[in-house]
Simulated scan of single mutants.
Amino acid sequence: MESFVVIGLGRFGSAVAERLCQEGHQVLAVDVDEKVVQNMADKVTQAVAGDCQEMDVLRALGVQDMNCAVVAFSNDIGKSVLVTLNLKELGVPQVICKSKSHVHRRVLEKIGADRVVFPEHEMGVKLAQGLSSSNVLNFIELSEDFGIVETAIPRAWHFKTIKELDVRAKFKVNIIAMRKGKDGALNVAPGPDYTMEPGDAAVALGRTEDVNRLQDLE
């Protein structure tokens, strides 16, 4: 079990805090709005009203002893930056921040955020990937240049092994997992002798432009 502090209890922060607690982790949820905090009280380990722009507040909450902090608001860039700086100064091992724009993300990365998420952009990309091809089952953007795609394998791959297809050399992507059927079990890191069958889905990692090419294969 790990310990998390989630700062900012809007829809995004509340969802993160509640799910982390459901997964069995210790979760401290913080927001300046007491009404919001009361609504979260029964869904997390502890919910507290406080202004995390104040270093003394963070120290009193004991965030310096947490495994991870999530700065889950992005409406006020200045406040987001200050809270992130405070968390880094207190030595929180991992600080994850929500951003509202690419510029905001770059600022957060510059001041030391360990990971920056841009939910609206990422969901937009994911939706576009799904709409652009019926073969694409899932898409995760890792950065502006790299992504992971889960896609139904083309007919040309049926009954061939990963070694025979030489996917890495021919398509410049790495097959990191295979799924038997749409809802089947995931085979992580399949060996070169894995034989692909109709209905299989491949999970591939690579440059976005390269993983996109997989959806055009027939």
Rank of each mutant, 00 (worst) to 15 (best):
M123P: 03
D210V: 09
L20H: 00
G147A: 11
A185D: 12
A204K: 06
Q129L: 13
L217Q: 07
A201D: 09
A156L: 13
A49T: 15
N135M: 11
G199Y: 13
N187R: 08
A152Y: 12
R105D: 03
K182M: 10
D200R: 04
D183S: 09
G147L: 08
G91D: 02
V211Q: 03
E89Y: 07
R115F: 14
G62W: 06
T45P: 02
V48I: 14
F159W: 10
K98I: 07
A128M: 14
K126H: 14
M66H: 09
S80Y: 05
Q64E: 12
E120C: 10
E89D: 14
D200S: 07
L108K: 05
C21K: 14
V36I: 15
T45W: 06
V70W: 01
I175M: 02
E141K: 13
A17F: 00
K35R: 11
S14V: 05
V95R: 01
F4D: 06
D183N: 13
A69I: 13
L137C: 12
N138G: 09
V48F: 07
R213S: 09
I176S: 03
E150F: 08
M40K: 02
N67I: 04
E109G: 01
D56N: 13
K170S: 11
N39W: 01
I162E: 02
A185Y: 04
M123V: 12
N212C: 10
L90W: 02
H158W: 14
E54D: 13
F159N: 13
P190I: 15
V167Y: 00
D200K: 09
S3V: 11
L87K: 01
D145H: 11
E18T: 15
T84D: 09
E23W: 09
I140H: 11
P93Y: 05
T151P: 04
W157I: 03
L28T: 11
L90F: 05
F139N: 08
V149D: 02
A29H: 03
E109V: 05
A156E: 08
T84V: 12
T195N: 05
P93V: 04
G147C: 08
N86S: 09
L137D: 09
H104I: 10
K170R: 15
A128G: 10
R168W: 02
A17I: 08
F118D: 07
E34I: 10
V36C: 00
V125H: 10
A177S: 02
D114W: 04
K163A: 14
A49H: 00
V37T: 05
A202E: 08
V37W: 01
G24V: 10
R179T: 01
L85M: 13
I162W: 05
G181K: 02
V203M: 09
D166E: 12
L186R: 12
V167W: 00
S132W: 07
K182G: 00
K172P: 00
V211W: 03
A29P: 08
E141F: 04
E164K: 06
E122A: 11
S74E: 13
V83T: 15
F139M: 12
V57C: 14
V48A: 00
L108F: 06
E2A: 14
Q26M: 08
N86H: 09
Q22P: 00
V48M: 10
V173T: 10
A177K: 01
G13C: 06
V83E: 07
E109F: 03
I77Q: 08
E141Q: 14
